[in-house]
């Protein structure tokens, strides 16, 4: 029954192709009208024609399993289309509608088919439904995977972007941390910092955590690891930018850092300069001070 249903479906696609395509174009146009501006209807119809062509040739092999080799070219085409849609920012519904909107034209074609026994009709319909559902699900799967790829890529970029090591002075580095510190990021941060210590022959590293939203015991442990590793390399660490609320939370949690910490990056830099034996003086003596003296 399965095979005969598939052949019937393939025959129908061959015979009533123009009509199905016309109906489908109308469906696509209606769906596209709801979200204008992303893709032209002509383009959609052209893609639809290609899909229909490949679907017919694949179904005429008698295979009704959309994951089989006969459908590989069709799957490639659909995968390409839904990947493009994922990057263009289509919603899942919009992407899936493209395939699922083929159902109505196909069912209509079956209904108006002359001299078709009820058995044959139901077999053909069943094949058509499972096939289109399978292809629709496949489209969604690719769509989802493409979105996930985007997310993973962005995550990687964020973690690379948000761990810059800045040279503040000869021998003084700053590491402005932004975002949550998890173990993976700590690893990247640590490697970046240690390599920069070697590259700049730095004595002091200032870790600024103004941009770290929360400091719990785990984050504190990660910070301490970084500090310990920097110390092993012969560089002292100063932690700066602990916000008042965070300081309170840390004390309530019983988190102890045992590292020199300063309220602001400016204070930390002042301390760092003092330690490397530098002093910041104003270019000209301030007149106000003179007058008072």
């Amino acid at each position: 029954m399965d095979r005969s249903g598939t052949m019937l479906f393939a025959d129908l696609l061959g015979r009533a192709k123009t009509r199905i395509m016309a109906d489908w174009s109308a469906e696509l146009e209606r769906a596209n009208a709801r979200v204008p501006g992303r893709v032209s209807t002509q383009e959609l119809v052209a893609q639809g024609r290609e899909v229909l062509e490949l679907l017919q040739s694949a179904a005429s092999s008698g295979d009704s399993d959309p994951t089989s080799a006969a459908y590989s070219r069709l799957r490639d085409l659909l995968a390409e289309m839904s990947r493009a849609r994922a990057f263009q920012g289509f919603s899942p519904t919009e992407t899936a509608t493209f395939v699922f909107s083929l159902k109505k034209p196909v069912f209509d074609a079956f209904r108006t088919e002359p001299d078709l026994s009820p058995d044959a009709m139901s077999a053909g319909l069943w094949t058509a439904t499972t096939l289109i559902d399978g292809l629709g699900l496949f489209t969604m799967e690719v769509f989802q995977k493409s979105r996930e790829e985007v997310i993973i890529r962005q995550q990687r970029e964020i973690s690379e972007l948000s761990t810059p090591v800045v040279k503040l002075w000869d021998g003084v580095l700053a590491l402005p941390l932004i975002g949550t510190l998890d173990s993976e990021r700590t690893q990247v941060v640590m490697e970046n910092l240690l390599q920069s210590i070697v590259d700049h022959t730095a004595e002091i590293a200032i870790i600024d955590i103004t941009g770290v939203p929360t400091v719990d015991t785990l984050v504190a442990q990660h910070l301490l690891k970084t500090v310990a590793a920097a110390r092993l390399m012969g560089a002292d660490c100063i932690i700066s930018g602990i916000r008042p609320q965070i300081a309170q939370t840390m004390v309530h949690l019983g988190v102890e850092l045992n590292v020199v910490s300063k309220a602001t990056l400016a204070d930390a830099l002042a301390l760092a300069l003092q330690r490397i034996g530098r002093r910041v003086v104003s270019a000209s003596p301030a007149p106000a001070v003179r007058a008072s003296a």
Partner: peptide, 22 residues
């Protein structure tokens, strides 16, 4: 750097040892 990370991960931060870069 790699050695420093390894030692820290091993839990050996060697508090009694002074360190210098070169």
């Amino acid at each position: 750097p790699a050695v420093a990370i390894t030692l820290v991960e091993l839990g050996l931060s060697m508090p009694g040892v002074n360190t210098a870069l070169n």
